[in-house]
């Protein structure tokens, strides 16, 4: 029992359980859903969200937020697409896209760490600036003439796994190793958990913040390259609104918005889960306009359910302690009864 409750307290285990249950339920209704083909397709199309969620987790871990990833992804995709359609080599086009992501991310990080602008405001600003600049750059046109070889890359397979899945998987694993096996990686948790404390013990807090935003920007441009590969053209609205889905995916995977808590593994699973929900509706023969309502409802249900469940687990553990405390103390209000668990820090 104790082991089970410990296991359920690990967010990754519960989200994995949710995914299996969900896929199983849909599979019972429509067996076509659980076929290897359709699951492979879902995995491939979830890579964009997965890469973005992994990048976003770095920022969320430092108790910041980055809402500019959608615009960054749009601009990177536009640059990559235009360069490709002008006959520039694929490596150069991808490289240019990555540099753009790095620069925008670093600019965000500098604004937040050196100019002390709250991250939601800084990235809200760059969201507008980058989106507007993208429309100047593309002159409001869609980019459609992407060379064929680049589009075919998305179908290229190695060991039976397609290239986008390789890219997303390798990026996630590298980020996971960086975050959990290197001391610099642990600094992200320290900065998010207690910024003042991290500074006092001599961690480079500002550098870590800049680094976090740079990773997020980089992830946006990797996602942009995957987008160009998968979709084969770049509409004006590329990536608009995806920032909220990314944050939802990370939160679903157990990354805390108040920083210092969560893992990349969880965020990646959260992204896959969101994509599974979106795709499952097709197999349930639900009309497409139900999409948002159901994913919103499920997000609320899971987040609320998980929070209540964790509170209940904590309460169970503390019950004995509390009974004693109640005996000793008169009725003082318990701490933690004031609305939210943590103070909101954005």
């Amino acid at each position: 029992m104790k082991v089970l409750s410990r296991l359920l307290q690990i967010r990754e285990a519960s989200i994995l359980l949710f995914i299996f249950l969900f896929v199983g339920c849909i599979g019972i209704v429509n067996p076509a859903f659980t076929s290897g083909d359709s699951l492979g397709l879902i995995l491939k199309s979830s890579m964009i969200l997965l890469v973005l969620a992994v990048g976003q987790s770095f920022v969320l871990l430092t108790a910041n937020i980055d809402v500019s990833v959608g615009s960054t992804m749009g601009l990177s995709a536009a640059v990559c697409g235009i360069l490709l359609s002008h006959g520039v080599s694929g490596y150069l086009a991808v490289g240019a896209a990555l540099v753009i992501g790095l620069c925008i991310g670093a600019a965000n990080g500098l604004g937040v760490s050196f100019f002390r602008i709250p991250s939601i405001i800084m990235t809200l600003g760059t969201l507008g600036i980058v989106r507007g600049y993208m429309l100047f750059y593309t002159e409001g046109r869609w980019i459609e003439d992407i060379p064929h070889y680049f589009k075919e890359l998305s179908a290229a397979a190695f060991l039976g796994i397609q290239l986008p899945v390789w890219i997303g998987g390798i990026a996630a694993v590298l980020a996971f190793i960086f975050l959990s096996r290197f001391s610099v990686g642990r600094y992200f948790y320290a900065v998010g958990d207690n910024e003042a404390g991290a500074r006092l013990i001599g961690l480079p807090v500002r550098f870590i913040t800049v680094l976090a935003f740079t990773f997020s920007g980089l992830s946006a441009s990797i996602a942009a390259c995957l987008f160009v590969m998968n979709i084969g053209f770049v509409p004006n609205q590329t990536g608009s609104g995806i920032e909220l889905q990314v944050i939802a995916a990370a939160v679903l995977g157990g990354v805390s918005l108040s920083g210092g808590q969560g893992s990349l593994f969880g965020a990646a699973l959260g992204a896959i889960f969101l994509e599974v929900i979106n795709h499952s509706l097709v197999f349930l023969k639900v009309p497409a306009y139900w999409n948002n309502a159901i994913s919103g409802f499920l997000l609320l249900l899971i987040v609320t359910g998980d929070s209540r469940f964790q509170l209940w687990l904590k309460g169970n553990g503390k019950k004995k302690k509390q009974e004693q405390e109640d005996m000793n103390r008169s009725k003082l209000p318990k701490s933690g009864e004031d609305g939210y668990e943590d103070k909101v820090v954005l």
Partner: peptide, 23 residues
């Protein structure tokens, strides 16, 4: 009720309400 951060909850209800409107 859930004590989840307001940004997360309203993010979910943003999808829910816009979805309901479409439905």
């Amino acid at each position: 009720y859930s004590r989840v951060q307001p940004l997360v909850v309203t993010l979910g209800s943003m999808f829910l309400f816009s979805g309901l409107a479409l439905v």
